[in-house]
């Protein structure tokens, strides 16, 4: 593949460097998801509940793509990284649920 470079390590074993291809694909997907989210709101013809669902879905999908590819979370050796972030997400999500369903009970 033209976009994969290889260097010879000290043991003479070639190591493949990842090319920019999948990062550009992740970028295009991010743009696409953003456009869908904006278009759903801008059209103003889709009912509210469905719009909210689309927005949350697009945001979660985009965050997943960016964290997996751009922050290398899908690569091995990211066990503690995932545990750390998920702990943060758990607390944050609890706060958001509290704000949405409890504050104005």
């Amino acid at each position: 593949m033209s976009n994969q470079h290889s260097t010879v390590e000290e043991h003479g074993r070639p190591r493949k460097h990842e090319g920019p291809k999948k990062h550009i694909v992740a970028f295009i997907f991010s743009i696409l998801l953003t456009v869908i989210a904006f278009a759903t709101v801008a059209s103003g013809e889709i009912n509210e509940t469905f719009t909210y669902l689309v927005l949350v879905g697009m945001a979660l999908l985009q965050v997943f793509i960016q964290m997996a590819f751009w922050m290398h979370m899908k690569d091995r050796g990211h066990m503690f990284a995932i545990v750390g972030i998920l702990t943060g997400v758990f607390v944050a999500f609890t706060c958001v649920l509290m704000a949405e369903y409890w504050v104005w009970w």
Partner: peptide, 24 residues
Amino acid sequence: VLAFWLFLGGETVLFGTLFSAFLA
């Protein structure tokens, strides 16, 4: 790198609380 991931976990909580205040 590992410590920075843990820091980002803390940042997630920080923004989570700000988001919940905004949502409320």
